[in-house]
Design a protein around this nucleic acid. Structure first.
Lengths: 206, 206
DNA sequence: CTCTATTATCACCGATGAGTGACATACGCA
DNA sequence: TGCGTATGTCACTCATCGGTGATAATAGAG
């Protein structure tokens, strides 16, 4: 439980934001409210209104923290060197995203909430992540040629969609669409399937 | 707004269930509660407790209504005759499921809620749908050989996951992962991409 | 017709929600 | 040193929540 130092607005704001992130990651948006947040942050709820103008402002602030989420999570993949072909590029993207999403309950909750209660505000958060994603692809792609005979953007969308739904299912139920996903071996099976899918549709240079 | 006839328990129960389905399809689980449901069903909330022992009982009753959802939605596809190969089988499954899911806000809401607030109860609803799905595949597959060189169950899971995430995104935001999905042409683009994905991974007999 | 059991309604409880106005405290500037 | 303002606290309103006990109304059995 984050605790605010006294008489320090910046610290209090951080305490509120940190508490909010922790609560969301733990319980989701379910019982997320001003009262609970104030309790968790160890301050009076009045301050939430004063400093953030309510819960929405807190969400926006979290959005600021997460603005570069995709970029930051995928950056290490650039160090692997240039991908040999488009298939390898998308494979890296998919597996990197899978891992990043899998270990980040906060982003999982945000995505899940976006599914069940769409709002312009949550959509903005998601849009920022998407933007970082395509920027990464552009940067990592370099001068690699894009497949012209198939609709790569739509196919990539399908692949990313698949990853998000699988992670969300597994996080909640321990399995996804009949495939158990409780430990690293089981996840490795799913990774292999995704790789097979990507290699099949984008071909592989040998 | 469903309205109960007076002094007719069966009719009242139906009115409650119908109102619940309508509310969930319209607003999701967000403000779904005993008070709101009673108001919408045009009866006193006490009856919800008497006849269903609370909200959970109502959900279970809806589950009963939806027990054969997959089976019923996919059945027409059996009339198309035997698929020529495994790819065609999965293609029919995917496109059939996409369409069924796309036009059914109630099932969409249930799925979305399962993502953001996993519970054994919701999981049971989803499990029933899954079961119907694999039963359909077994029935439709007949004596068609299954691909042995790849992990078809995991790949199929990924494909179905993809479809659900795409539909949920599109329902909320009008687009999914950068691909606009507001009209039938745009959906046709996504269908083509899914077909390409399935054909690529499962090959096609020619 | 009378009585009983089912059906439906009403009035209430305690808890909790968001939101706000008034008040206390302490920091830093003049 | 004293004062103003930023910071923090408290107490309250009003609405809604899930849940329950008592009571009214009516249909059907005898």
């Amino acid at each position: 439980m984050a605790q605010a130092r006294n008489r320090d607005r910046a610290a209090t704001e951080r305490a509120i934001i940190d508490a909010a992130k922790e609560m969301l990651a733990r319980d989701g948006f379910q019982n997320f409210g001003v009262n609970a947040l104030a309790r968790e942050a160890g301050c009076d709820k009045q301050l939430i209104y004063r400093y953030f103008e309510g819960l929405d402002g807190v969400i926006d602030a979290i959005g600021g923290d997460l603005a570069n989420w995709s970029r930051d999570r995928l950056r290490p993949l650039l160090a692997l060197g240039r991908p040999a072909d488009y298939a390898e590029l998308i494979e890296r993207l998919a597996l990197g995203l899978l891992q990043a999403f899998r270990v980040d309950p906060l982003v999982q909750r945000i995505k899940a909430w976006e599914f069940s209660a769409p709002s312009p505000q949550l959509a903005r958060l998601s849009a920022a992540r998407s933007r970082g994603l395509v920027e990464w692809v552009i940067e990592a792609r370099g001068d690699l040629e894009m497949p012209s005979d198939i609709d790569a953007p739509a196919i990539n969308a399908a692949i990313i969609a698949s990853i998000e739904a699988i992670v969300l299912s597994a996080a909640g139920a321990g399995h996804a669409y009949g495939i158990p996903l409780r430990n690293e071996e089981e996840w490795e099976r799913m990774r292999r399937a995704l790789k097979a899918l990507i290699r099949a549709v984008y071909g592989q240079r040998r």
